[in-house]
Design a protein around this nucleic acid. Structure first.
Lengths: 204, 204
DNA sequence: CAATTAAATGAACGTTCGTTCTTTTAATAA
DNA sequence: TTATTAAAAGAACGAACGTTCATTTAATTG
C-alpha cells in the first residue's frame, strides 16, 4: 500500500503530537520509539518523517506548545484590577485547573527537559522562567502593599510553585476531593504560606 | 586481558552504583546504556553482569537504598519529646539537609518510578508512601493539639512535601542563599502554611 | 603448591533503534 | 485530463542496545 485514502497531512501531524504525548508521559522520551509512535498513529514509522524531521522535533514542539499555551492562558486572565491577594488566589486556581486537565503536558515539560538538545533546552527553559516570574512578581507586589509578609520573595515563589506542581503527582479525578475543594484548600494554604493574615475576614 | 590486578568484587559493585547514579540523574534510565556505565566504572560491559543480573536490578537497588537511607535517617532523629511544631521544623530541616546532599538520589527516586518493572515499583512506592505518612502524621497531631489549623491534613501534607521536593530543582550550592537560610525560610513558610500562628513568639 | 573461584576481557548474539530511500497511490494544480 | 505534489508503505541502513559466552588471569582456598 501507499498513500491512504482520505489522509491529510495536517491531520496526521496533529495525530502524531496527540498520540506521542501520553506515550512520553508514561515511558519517557528515550523509551518511546518512533515505531511505537507510528503504531499509535496507525501509520508506518517512515511516514512520520513526512511531518517531522526527527524524533527530537516532536518533543520540542510538544513542550513549547504546552508552555506557550500555559503562558497565553494566564495572560488571558484579567487580573489588572486585583489586589495581590486576589491575584495569587486567581493564579492558584488557574494553575490547578489548567494543569489538572493537561497532566501529561505538565509532566513531560517538567521531566523531559534533560532530553532536550541545547537549542531546544534554552527555548523551553526561558518559557519556564517566565512562568516563575509571574509568581515572584505577585509576591513582591504583595510585600509592597503589606498584604504579604515573607522572608524572601524568590524562595516563597519557588515554594508556592513546588507545592502546586506536586498536585499533578497525586491528583486523581475520581479521588476523595473535587477539583474545587482542592483549589479552595490550596488557596488557603498558600496564602497563609506567604504570610497573608485572613483573620477577621471571610474564611475561604 | 582478563581479571585486573587488585580488583575486588565488592568494590566494583559499589563503584557501579556510585557511577550509575549521576548518569541516570542526568540522562534518564532508558537513555543510559550498560556500556556507558561500564565506561564510567572503567570496566567492560560484560563485567557488569558479574555484579548485577540486569540493568533493572541496578536501578532498583539505587532507589531502594536511597529510600531506606532516607527513612532510617529520619528514624534516627529523636522527636519523641517534641511538640508538633518542633517536629515539623525538624522534619523540614532534615529533609532539606538530607536531600540537598543527595540531589541525584532524590531526583531519580522521583523521576524513574515509571522505569521500574511491577515488583520493583511496588516496593519503592511503599517506601515513598511511608515517607508521606511522616508528614501527614505530624500535621494530624498538630491539629489535635490545636497548634495547626488546616482544612485537610492530607492536602496540607502533600503541599508541604511538594514544596520541599521542589527545592532540589533549583538549589545550587553556590547560589545566593546558604543552606541554613533556605532552611530557615522554609520552616517559616511551611509552618505558616499549616496555620501555625507564631505571633507573640520569637520569630524564626 | 595445586585447585578452585572470582573478576575481568572481548567477541558475538539477536533485537531494536532513528533514519533514509524507493516505490506506490491519492489529492491537487495546471 | 495530465502533471505534479503530498502522504503513505515497506525494505533497508548502520549503529547501538541488553545480554551471553568462552577465555584469561588474579585472588583465595584446601
Amino acid at each position: 500500500m501507499a498513500r491512504i485514502k482520505g489522509s491529510i497531512g495536517s491531520q496526521t501531524k496533529a495525530s502524531i503530537l496527540e498520540k506521542t504525548l501520553p506515550l512520553i508521559a508514561r515511558f519517557g522520551y528515550a523509551a518511546v520509539s518512533m515505531r511505537m509512535i507510528a503504531d499509535a498513529v496507525g501509520v508506518n514509522a517512515g511516514a512520520l518523517y513526512n511531518h517531522f524531521p526527527s524524533k527530537q522535533h516532536i518533543l520540542v514542539l510538544l513542550m513549547s506548545e504546552h508552555m506557550d499555551g500555559l503562558l497565553a492562558a494566564w495572560a488571558d486572565v484579567d487580573t489588572q484590577s486585583m489586589t495581590p491577594v486576589e491575584r495569587l488566589e486567581s493564579f492558584v486556581r488557574f494553575h490547578i485547573s489548567y494543569n489538572i486537565t493537561r497532566a501529561d503536558d505538565v509532566f513531560i515539560s517538567f521531566m523531559e527537559l534533560r532530553s532536550l538538545e541545547p537549542e531546544g533546552h534554552k527555548r523551553i527553559e526561558q518559557k519556564r522562567s517566565a512562568y516563575e516570574d509571574v509568581v515572584r512578581k505577585i509576591i513582591r507586589e504583595g510585600q509592597e502593599t503589606g498584604q504579604f509578609n515573607v522572608e524572601d520573595a524568590h524562595v516563597a515563589a519557588m515554594s508556592v510553585l513546588g507545592s502546586l506542581i506536586g498536585v499533578n503527582t497525586w491528583y486523581r479525578a475520581k479521588g476523595r476531593l473535587s477539583k474545587e475543594k482542592i483549589e479552595d484548600y490550596y488557596v488557603a494554604i498558600l496564602l497563609r504560606s506567604v504570610g497573608y493574615d485572613a483573620k477577621g475576614k471571610t474564611d475561604v
